[in-house]
Write a protein that binds this DNA or RNA. Sequence first.
RNA 1: GCCAGAGUGGUGGAACGGUAUACACGGCGGAUUCAAAAUCCGCUGCCUUCGGGCUUAGGGGUUCAAAUCCCCUCUCUGGUACCA
Length: 816
Amino acid sequence: MEYNAQSLEKEWQEYWAKNRSFEPDEDFTKEKKYILSMFPFPSGRLHMGHVRNYTLSDTFARYYRQQGFNVLHPIGFDSFGMPAENAAIKNGSHPKGWTYDNIDYMKGEFKTLGFSFSKERELATSDELYTKFEQGFIIDMFEKGLLYRKKGLLNWCPHDQTVLANEQVVDGCCWRCDTPIVKKDMNQYYFKITQYSDELLDDLKKLEGGWPKQVLTMQENWIGKSNGLEFDLFFDDMSLTKLNNKFKSFDVFTTRPDTIYGVSYTALAPEHEIVTYMIENNLLSNEVIAEIKKMKNTSSIDRQKEKSGIDLGLHVVHPLTGKKIPVWVANFVLMDYGSGAVMAVPAHDERDFDFAKKYNLEINAVIKPFEGEADSDKAYTEVGELFNSGEFDGMNSKKSQYNIIKHFEENNIGKKTTNYKLKDWGVSRQRYWGAPIPFVHCDDCGIVMEKKENLPVALPDDVEITGEGNPLENHPTWKHCSCPSCGKDAVRETDTMDTFVESSWYFLRFCASPENWEKEAFSAEQIKYWMGVDHYIGGIEHAILHLLYARFFTKVFRDLGYLDFDEPFDKLLTQGMVLKDGAKMSKSKGNTVDPDALIEKYGADTARLFILFAAPPTQELEWNDSAVEGAYKFIKRFFDRSSNILKTDTIPTIEHSSLSKDEKFARKKVYEALKRADEVYNERYTFNTMIAGVMEAMNALNTQDNSDVWSEGYWILSSIMEPVIPHVCWQISSEYFSLNNLTSQRVLEEVFVEDSVTLGVSINGKRRCEIEVAIDEPKDSIIELAKEKAEKWLEGKTIVKEIVVPKKLVNLVVKG
RNA sequence: GCCAGAGUGGUGGAACGGUAUACACGGCGGAUUCAAAAUCCGCUGCCUUCGGGCUUAGGGGUUCAAAUCCCCUCUCUGGUACCA
């Protein structure tokens, strides 16, 4: 029979669908594996990155099914988000129609790729049922104080009249109309993720070994914990008068309390409340006010180009020396870190140094190197010895930090503090295609939660998407409602949620049995059984945001009593990008490969085999058309040579000692491949080497013609390869083995037993020749033999050391 | 700048301190064919005076033995970016 990928694959896909082959069992006494790949946004078509992602998870899922596990391998669609609205603006489609059409198409693609997803648990996060439960959780979080509303600075496009996400701001301008964006103070909802900063950081330790180190480091840096000293700087009398006694002091934070005696000025962020007060009350000249306003309106990228600042004409008193210190406003001071104000030590901080140089401010060194002199052309930021530092003179700067903080605390003028880079997560979007935030604004009651029995607060279908303003805000009737608390006329919140909220808990929803989907988001029992995710597979681009948010939600759900563990994903595999001509595949570069076309030409098995064979999963994968062709040829050969198999329902029993050399070798290669497969599936995930092992075994099988050896070989190889190239393996297995071999296979150690072994002989570590010796040859005679064979290289030399590594090599160390 | 990770044939990549270049792609040669495709078989790191010599970005070290461990330099990729 000819290998016809298309018809063969279609047949098995129908078979699997008909037999519900991939639905998880509801029997919770079985051992489970939860295999999850990051779900896609329904952009319209799968790209090669998706194919790689789902091939990887499918390979794990199929392997564990073979091993007898109860496997959950679900898929869904992260289906809210801006691209649906952009498509609406561009072609007048409705976001909902566009989204669900795309989902239908992509489901078809999943099927033709042979992915073993659970069909019955498929979901889209834009489904009203999903929104319903999500809004329920939002309400829970609001009640717990984990969701709050406050004014915050947002990216605002004055032309499109909308808030933009940070990712939509390109070089300080709106990505769509190129208008420079401005920061606008608006009410926004925030998740109090900072309440979990320490736990999110500390629990990274629990993930060591299971998660790539790189991702752990990225999260650690993102959380950005730093310890230091926080203290108040008090204004002198003149400044107090100038500020109408409105402010007595401001707060600063430093990680370098050891440099405290070197403070020569202080700087406030342009957005600092004292600066704002001075502007609003005309306490500064018009030129200065204009200058500060300009500073505030400069994009963060431009702000980084050059440091600039203005003397505010105020002074504070140094907390230890009592010296007067000038107060400046400076563009490099960030409002959203610490208190938005810094003490400046130009002698020991590069930024402070640059600024001091530019404006001719004092530079007072207080730390010197233990040996030699510090370079006065730049800041000395290393550890050293304190001087000009009062009672702390002579101390090691690093060690003095503890003493100085203690001094501040004992005198009640400051305290030890921890700061984080991590900020609360702003989740409201002035967008249509998202989950509505289920709150109501009532003149009398304030912000009121919608009653849970009224959920979901669903999106209206009849909207006009123009790209300007918020369609929910502009809708004639949708937002008008009555207050859930007092019943008076009220207005719905028109903000929708960031789509990262949906992806923060979808893995929990997949644990729910479909028969209860309407009733509950999931049950404690289901979560307890299926979580944590045993293998989570996806792109490194989600290393921070999605993975951090999902960890945060897990901890919140734990504290809400929905589950009882701390971390959702036990093992994380981050796949590399798919490249063509050395660049990431993208439509704009025109270097994409369409999965559908590939499947049409070669079939899904070829696509899957190539993707797993071309590179290890974590590495980038360079597309190569002729290597794809090579994968196809291998499958074809694998299929064609199956004609050497004898039909059997059990693995053949073979008398190993009666076999020829080639036959023995073939068996050895087959079992080597099996050994390697176990290792790859369980520890290394380097499917490329597993496939290479199978190819070697195939090559070895082909050098002999014992049909029992062929049958045994195929029994094992088609079992190993089923997770990779399932269609052709099911075909072979059903034709010859009644599908009995698609289970876990046992390694037969007897095939590795040999009576002689070849050893490499090295002189001074350089390999010169080889010898063949009996397996139990004593060390002395091995050395004797090696000397004989290597005589040529030993002439006139003295052997000073002899090393024998059993079954590997002999190394003779010579002199002279 | 800082933090990760990586540098192995013409190419993708093997080698968890022990025979470097497995497996594949590409190339070359042969068989088959009227011819081609397909298929099958063989060769293929570099240099060579055909004895051999040299090779894992470069330099040093540890070791009987280093692609692998340590130090320095260079290059590339990713993340992050005035975080006080």
